[in-house]
Amino acid sequence: MDARTSVKAELMTIKQTQAFKKKFDFSRKFIANAGTAGREVIPLTNEGPFLCTGYNIRFTKNSTMTRGGVTTNINRVGVRFTAESDNSAQSNDYVPVQLISTPGDVDGVRYGERPWQHLYPEGDALTIEYDNRAPAIPAVPGDTYSMQNEEIEICFTGYIFPGQSIK
């Protein structure tokens, strides 16, 4: 097989493969306002079901916690994902982004997505619930919090299966 034939065969394979399955990212950047909880909704495509295989999160650390006179920048935002179609939460609580974010810190080294598998029907919506409130009771007596707006960016990566249906 000469080089041209090889490339042609490769392209044909890609074309045929993408008829069944293709990579797709859904990304959303939002501001988690200080002291509030809210939600973001990402409409998914009608083209076919979306199989999320992982996500990547980056966040800012604008809020501060003061303990013993020492002030530290923190991010207390927690997130919880649901599929709009079944409204079934993918975690039992708001999970701190610092526990599941892949960069690990602001502008930190990225080491790829956090693998996470969830199948969404075509036309579904991916809901992000978030909470950026200070704890009702300080974790350690005397702690004080200054909650600030935090920028959160989440990229859900996975595959779309065009023409298929799981509804």
Binding site: F20, L51, S91, N92, P115
Partner: peptide, 27 residues
């Protein structure tokens, strides 16, 4: 990642499997 799906039957297998196996966190 990057695996080649050869036919629609394989797609159905993946979708049917994934419908019944979802990642979950408990905090």
């Amino acid at each position: 990642n990057g695996c080649t799906i050869k036919d629609a039957a394989q797609v159905r297998h993946i979708l049917e499997t994934c419908k019944n196996a979802m990642a979950k966190d408990y905090l």
